[in-house]
Design a protein around this nucleic acid. Structure first.
Lengths: 344, 344
DNA sequence: TTGTATGCGTTATCAG
DNA sequence: CTGATAACGCATACAA
C-alpha cells in the first residue's frame, strides 16, 4: 500500500485524450475546446488530481521553495521572523525550508550546501556568529543565487539586507539607563565580527558619551557564541562583578544575551533592578510580563521576515543581477517598564 | 545571469564519457574501472558537482522532505518541538517544510493539500483547535501517507501519536494550587474537541476531587481559538471575576492561555500571585525568570519533536501499512516557584 | 482543436 | 567495463 498519486497520464487514458491535451485543458489554454476543457476539468476534480510539484520543479528549474538559515528556531526573535517569512511565502505559493546553524560555522556551511543542492530558489540568511569565512556565500551569490541577509548580515556581499537600527536600539537602551541615573553601565555584546555586534557597541558608546559618562573597556564583555553557551554569560557576569566598582546597570545587546544575563544574575543571587539595573534587546512575548524587572528593546521581527521575503521574491522572480541592492533599516522599539520618562 | 547547476551531462561531455558511466562512477558502482572512477570523481569534485535532488525525487518518488503543520511557529512550545524535529531530520538527510494553520481549519486544509500534493514524504501534525472535520487527514492516511500526530492529536486516526501526559500535568498544576491552600481554583481551557483539552480538563477535575474541592462548571472557561485572540482571554478573565466569589487561583491549560491570561490579568490590574494565584502550562524559556510569579507545567517539547520524527522516519522508510501504531506519552515537569512543597 | 515528440537530471535496464 | 535508451510527470514546440 503506497501513496499513489494520479497523474495527467491517468486522466488522458481514462478520457481517451493525449497528455498534452489534458495538460493544456488543465492550464485553461485558449487552444482547447470548451467541451474538452469541461470534460477534463470535471474528471480531474472527480479523481482529485493535483499536479506533481516535483515534476514541475524539474521542468521549470525552480522549486518554489525558499531556504531559511538561522542559528536557532527556538528563539523568540527568529521564530517571529520565520513567522513573517512564512506568511509572505505562503501568500505567493512558496514553501519554506528551515535550517539551523546552531551558531556553528561548520553546520552552517554543511546545511547551506545541502539547501542549495536541494534546489531552493533563494535564501534568507542570518549568519552564525562563529562564521568568519564567507567565501561559500560569496560564491553562491556570484553564481546568481538570490540571497537576502537579515539581522546578522555579511557586509561584503552585495545583495539586499534587512536590519534593525541596531545603533539606535543600543543607544536608546543605554541612554535610558543613564537617564535613570546609573553611572557604571556595563555592556554584554556579541562579537564585533558581526555587524550587529559592532553597531550595537557603537550605540552604547555614543549614548555613554552623550550622557557624559566615560567609556571603559573593562565594562564590556563579549560573548563569542552569542550566549548559546550558558557558561559564557556566567563568566561575563562573574568577571563584571569581580571588578572593584561593580556595574550598577547592564545593557545586553541581544535576545539570547538578555535572557542569559538575567539567568546568570539570578544564579548569583542578584536581583533586577534591585542589585543591578538592566535593559536589553528582547523579543520574547513574555518580557511583557516581567514587569517591573526591566525595559527592553524590541525588534520588529515579524516585519523583518515579511520584508526580507518580499525582497527575496522580487529577486527570484526578476532573474536579473542585483545591481540596485539595498539595505533596509527598520526601527527598534523601546518598551519602558520603569519610572524613567520615555525616550523620544 | 542565472544560477546554473552543473549536471552529470556536463561531466560526461567534458570527459568524453556517457552519462550512465558518469552516474555509475559517482555512485561507486562495481562495474566501473578504477581509473574511470578516479577521473570522474576528481572532475566532479573540481567543478563542484552536486546531484539535482529534484530529478532524484522525481525518479525515486520521494522527496526526503517532511512536512510539519503547527498552528503557530512563534510559540515557544512549537518552536521547541520544531527544533527537535529539525535535529533528527537533519541527522537523516531530510528537509523540513513548515506550515502554519494559525488555528484556522481552512488554512490548515489548504496548507495540507499544498504540502501533500506530492512533495512531502510524511507529515508531523498538531491539528488546529478549530478543526472538526478530519476527513481529509483520514483520507490521506488511508491512502498511505505517513503521519505522526503530536500534542493535538486526532484520536480517530490510527497512526503514531506523541503526546505529553496531559492529565498528569493538569493534575499536578491543580493539586499544587490546592496544596497552597487555594479553594476557588478556576480553569481556562482549550475546547474539548481537542484531546488535550479533554485530558487537561479531566486532570483538573480529578485533582479538585482528590483535594476535596467541588468542581463547578462556572469556574471553567473555554477558549475556542486556543488563546490566539487576546479578546478570548479578556472575556474569560472578565467573566471569571464578575462572579460573586471570584476565583483565588487559576489553572491555565496551555502555553498560549497562560501568557494570555497573565496579560489579561495585568490589563485588569490584578497581580499574580498577589490578587490571584496561577499555575499554567508554559514552555517559554523566560518563565524561568518570572519568579516568583508562578509555577509552571513544562512539556518536553524538544524530545517530542525528536520522537515524532523518529517515528515518522520509521514509517516512511519501511513502506508497510501501520498496524502497530502506538501512542507515546511523555511526562510533564512541574517547575515550582513558590513556597509550596514540591509535588511528587 | 488535438496529438506527437522532446527535454528537464537522474538512474535502471538492457546491449554491446 | 561502457554506452544507448527508457522512464519519472509535466509543459511546450511542432505537426497534423
Amino acid at each position: 500500500m503506497k501513496f499513489e498519486a494520479v497523474t495527467i497520464k491517468d486522466i488522458a487514458k481514462a478520457l481517451g485524450l493525449s497528455t498534452s491535451t489534458v495538460s493544456r485543458a488543465l492550464r485553461d489554454s485558449y487552444e482547447i475546446s470548451p467541451e474538452t476543457k469541461k470534460l477534463v476539468l470535471e474528471y480531474a476534480e472527480k479523481i482529485n488530481y493535483h499536479p506533481n510539484p516535483i515534476a514541475l520543479s524539474l521542468k521549470e528549474r525552480r522549486s518554489r521553495t525558499i531556504g531559511v538559515m538561522v542559528c536557532e528556531i527556538a528563539n523568540s526573535y527568529f521564530s517571529q521572523v520565520i513567522n513573517g517569512i512564512e506568511s509572505i511565502a505562503q501568500l505567493h505559493g512558496y514553501n519554506v525550508i528551515i535550517s539551523q546553524s546552531r551558531d556553528s560555522a561548520g553546520r552552517e556551511l554543511q546545511n547551506l550546501q545541502y539547501l542549495t543542492s536541494r534546489s531552493v530558489d533563494g535564501l534568507i540568511i542570518s549568519v552564525s556568529s562563529e562564521t568568519k569565512d564567507f567565501s561559500y556565500l560569496q560564491e553562491l551569490h556570484d553564481r546568481g543565487m538570490p540571497i537576502v541577509f537579515f539581522d546578522r548580515i555579511v557586509d561584503a556581499i552585495e545583495t539586499h539586507k534587512v536590519i534593525t537600527d541596531n545603533f539606535k536600539g543600543a543607544y536608546d537602551a543605554t541612554q535610558h539607563l543613564a537617564q535613570m541615573g546609573y553611572k557604571r553601565i556595563a555592556a554584554i555584546c556579541n562579537t564585533i565580527t558581526l555587524s550587529i555586534g559592532k553597531e550595537r557597541l557603537a550605540g552604547y558608546k555614543a549614548a555613554l558619551k552623550d550622557a557624559g559618562l566615560d567609556y571603559k573597556e573593562e565594562m564590556v564583555r563579549t560573548c563569542e557564541h552569542g550566549g548559546m553557551l550558558a557558561s559564557e554569560l556566567e563568566e561575563a557576569v562573574a568577571s563584571l562583578f569581580a571588578a572593584s566598582p561593580a556595574p550598577d546597570a547592564i545593557f545586553a545587546a541581544a535576545d539570547k544575551l538578555t535572557t542569559g544575563c538575567l539567568q546568570a544574575l539570578r544564579n548569583r543571587g542578584l536581583s533586577v533592578p534591585g542589585d543591578v539595573a538592566m535593559v536589553g534587546f528582547s523579543n520574547s512575548e513574555l518580557t511583557g510580563l516581567l514587569n517591573p524587572a526591566m525595559s527592553v528593546i524590541k525588534q520588529p521581527a515579524f516585519e523583518m521576515g515579511e520584508l526580507a521575503t518580499d525582497l527575496l521574491l522580487e529577486l527570484i522572480e526578476s532573474k536579473r543581477p542585483v545591481t540596485d541592492y539595498q539595505t533596509r533599516v527598520l526601527g527598534t522599539e523601546i518598551i519602558i517598564r520603569d519610572s524613567c520618562p520615555p525616550v523620544i
